[in-house]
């Protein structure tokens, strides 16, 4: 009788453990989550070539899949992010980068707005000086 009880407990225990295994912990989709996070961060700055205006990270197009696969392989092979980007730029041009490189062609793009801010500030100062005139002005609450 006692043996039977033990057997029962064992079976019960087994059932319990299997059901616990059944309600398992979700696994990361990627084999290597660290690498995947790196891929994700990087592919957010890359453009899917065949899509309307989508990042490589967000696109489901077959080419984007292939490129992600290729990037993973290169990362596994120990390439740095910069090397991977260079690899893609060598094949598809600067078009794949959402962050345009800083060079003589893109100087206006990168620095133009700040120049505008400076010029705007300068012009405003000059005009304000003129607007203020020379004599004293009294402040107003409001």
């Amino acid at each position: 009788m006692k043996k039977l009880l033990i057997l029962f407990l064992l079976v019960f225990n087994f059932l319990l453990s299997t059901s616990a295994a059944f309600a398992g912990e979700a696994k990361p989709l990627a084999e290597d989550p660290v690498l995947e996070a790196r891929l994700k961060a990087m592919s957010h700055e890359l453009r899917c070539l065949v899509c309307q205006n989508q990042t490589l990270a967000d696109s489901n197009s077959p080419l984007a899949e292939d490129l992600r696969k290729e990037i993973r392989a290169q990362m596994r092979a120990g390439k740095s992010d910069q090397e991977v980007v260079d690899y893609l730029v060598a094949r598809y041009g600067d078009f794949v980068r959402y962050r345009p490189p800083v060079n003589s062609n893109t100087a206006l793009l990168w620095f133009g707005p700040f120049l505008l801010l400076l010029i705007g500030g300068f012009v405003l100062y000059r005009v304000l000086k003129k607007q203020a005139g020379s004599d004293d002005i009294q402040g107003e609450d409001g």
Partner: peptide, 10 residues
Amino acid sequence: AGKISVGPPY
């Protein structure tokens, strides 16, 4: 002067 993309990082 070539094709570039200007996206969120910019």
